[in-house]
Amino acid sequence: MFSQRKVGIIGAGHVGSHCALSLILQGVCDEIVFVDVDKNKAQSQAFDCMDTVAFLPHRVKVKKGEIKDLKEMDIIVISVGTIDNISKNRLSELKGSLSMIKSFVPDVMKVGFKGYFIVITNPVDIVTYFVQQLSGLPHNHVIGTGTGLDSARLRRALSTKLNIDAKSIQAYMLGEHGDSQMGVFSQATINGMKLNDFLEKTEKKIDLDEVENIVAKAGWEIYSGKKSTEFGIACVCTDIIRAIYSDEKKIMACSGYLQGHYGQDGIYTGVPVIIGKHGIEKVLELELNEKESSKFNKTIEIIKKHIDIGDKILEETVCINF
């Protein structure tokens, strides 16, 4: 299906560059094209990435490009944007993010792109929705990173509390990649054993509400110390891309399009999905208890509210030229 695995990255900042590096080091693709309004930065990132190739067992080509060069890409990563470090709320980034995607998504489609968009730009669930709207691509071809990183952070937090390797923990955060995200602790397992049963058998006690809050605030905690978050999200992005190229049928959390799932319809949000060569091939529904259902519905309402706000923003937006 993919003769030469080609990935475009729009946005050559901290996140975009580390997505490229992760893809390169793991040998997931054969070619990467950086596109950015700052063409010098895109070129420098390409050169810096190419300097790693001499140390690798595989060959990767990395270069700077223009929108027209994205026609032949299989997958395009959208990693544009700036962090609002004043309000510390990803939702406040909506206006700027929508201005950016409106400036290039239609142009990408005009040159003939027919692949997959992987959206990282925040607020990612809402931006993913509008990338699909602006592109007209099938919903399963537009994938947001969603709560993929949050679910990894949940496993890290539980690992620390339980003194258990994170790879032995299966647990998901659902909903908005933001403050309202929620943990599905009722379905969390430790190598097949329900979390509650594991806690009972090991006589360990943890405050699950505290864990949920730690995960929701983890991004800002990292940002406060280094003014960026980049490594974890790059791995999430790489996992999605590898799953598409290798047709892995991988189950992971990301922004998937709900069509009656969880009683919701017509929006993207963080849920577990199966990813393969056709993109999101199936949205999986976890059984939520009453408390979890209430929290999930609240996070969905926040996303819906900001989709309405986004519609108005796009009507008034003056685009940035890429």
Rank of each mutant, 00 (worst) to 15 (best):
M1N: 07
S3I: 14
S3N: 14
Q4Y: 10
G11V: 05
G11S: 07
G13V: 04
G13L: 04
V15E: 05
S17D: 09
A20V: 06
D30A: 13
F34L: 14
D38R: 08
S44H: 12
A46I: 04
M50E: 03
D51P: 00
L56T: 01
H58M: 12
K63N: 08
I67V: 11
K68M: 13
K71N: 12
K71E: 15
D74P: 00
S79A: 15
S79I: 09
V80Q: 09
T82P: 05
I83M: 13
I83L: 15
N85E: 15
I86F: 11
I86N: 14
S87N: 15
S87Y: 14
E93M: 15
K95G: 04
L98Y: 08
I101F: 04
I101E: 08
V108W: 01
V108C: 07
M109V: 09
M109W: 02
V111I: 13
G112L: 00
K114L: 06
Y116V: 08
V119L: 06
T121F: 03
I126E: 00
I126G: 02
I126N: 00
V131Y: 00
T145P: 03
A152F: 09
R153V: 08
R153L: 14
I164L: 14
D165V: 10
K167F: 12
K167G: 08
A171Y: 03
G175F: 08
G175N: 07
G178D: 06
D179W: 12
Q187H: 11
F198R: 08
L199K: 05
L199Y: 02
K205C: 07
E210F: 13
I214R: 11
V215H: 02
V215L: 10
K217S: 11
A218D: 10
A218Y: 08
G219Y: 06
G219N: 06
W220G: 00
E221S: 03
S224C: 10
G225L: 07
G225E: 09
I233S: 13
A234M: 10
C235K: 14
D239F: 07
D239H: 08
Y245D: 05
D247W: 07
E248A: 02
K250C: 07
A253P: 04
C254K: 04
Q259S: 15
H261G: 09
G266C: 07
Y268N: 03
P272Q: 08
P272G: 00
V273G: 03
H278G: 12
G279H: 02
E281L: 11
E285K: 06
E287Q: 08
L288P: 06
N289H: 01
E290T: 00
K291N: 12
E292K: 06
K298S: 14
D308W: 11
N321W: 09
F322M: 13
